[in-house]
């Protein structure tokens, strides 16, 4: 191997890489929380007695889960202008990420809701609780707690897949790396650096989300502290 690694030229690109990192964080943040909100709402709708709502969510979930995120981004960014909806690259990827993550989270949360025992719902009904009170106080808290680990895994995968936004020229971490690589030809060096950053981000996201979970769900916290 007669190749000398030179990381020096990359230092000039530090500002771009840092702003790319911020954008990656922002994209992940919006994708994760927007996706969880959309996913929980869809999951509630998919277990509701309202039939058209259930059907709508079913179609939404199957479409997002059976097509690649990259193609979803292309349809939104390149395709929608054909019918007069022109979105900026950034707006397109925000929509695509929330839409995509929402579908996966919906399916996970639905599993949690369906695992709730029927008798608990009946008990809530006999106490005179409304549908929304039952959801808010009886069904959702344990359902979300049960599926919290798969949601964390899904959200970490979403953070990694934000790198796809670089395909339509959004300058996230990967996008910044593409620019630095084409201007300096230090391709291997820049992608190795970016790879390390992503691996670190992966652990940071997993850790932060798990801690957030322990703060939200008192029962898991008690179980953990009880064991310690």
């Amino acid at each position: 191997m007669n190749y000398t690694f030179q990381f020096g030229p990359l230092l000039n690109y530090l500002p771009q890489v840092v702003s790319g990192l911020w954008l990656t964080l922002l994209l992940s943040f919006v994708g994760i929380f927007g996706g969880i909100a959309l996913g929980v709402a869809s999951a509630v709708l998919s277990t509701s007695p309202w039939k058209p709502g259930r059907l709508l969510v079913r179609i939404y979930v199957e479409v997002t889960r059976n097509t690649p995120l990259l193609v979803q981004i292309f349809v939104i960014f390149f395709g929608l202008p054909n019918i007069g909806i022109r979105l900026s690259p950034l707006a397109s990827v925000f929509i695509a990420l929330v839409f995509n993550n929402g579908g996966y989270v919906a399916e996970i949360v639905r599993g949690g809701i369906e695992a709730t025992h029927r008798s608990q719902v009946e008990a809530a009904e006999s106490l005179g609780m409304t549908y929304f009170q039952t959801l808010r106080f009886v069904i959702l808290p344990p359902a979300l707690e049960k599926v919290f680990t798969p949601i964390v895994s899904q959200c970490v995968l979403l953070m990694l897949s934000t790198s796809l936004v670089s395909a339509i020229g959004v300058e996230d971490l990967t996008g910044a790396a593409m620019i630095a690589s084409s201007e300096t030809f230090r391709t291997m060096e820049i992608y190795l650096v970016i790879a390390v950053v992503y691996v670190v981000l992966n652990f940071v996201f997993r850790g932060v989300l798990n801690i957030a979970g322990l703060m939200i769900f008192t029962r898991s916290r008690r179980r953990l502290l009880g064991r310690a």
């Binding site: 190749y3 990694l160 897949s161 796809l164 990967t174 992608y191 992503y198």
Partner: peptide, 24 residues
């Protein structure tokens, strides 16, 4: 496994595509 799972596939793809050029 942790390393590969923590890496976006796109970055892995770029590494695989460009690494062999180090050896010409």
């Amino acid at each position: 496994m942790q390393l590969v799972q923590g890496l976006p596939l796109l970055v892995l793809l770029f590494l695989c595509y460009y690494a062999p050029s180090l050896f010409g």
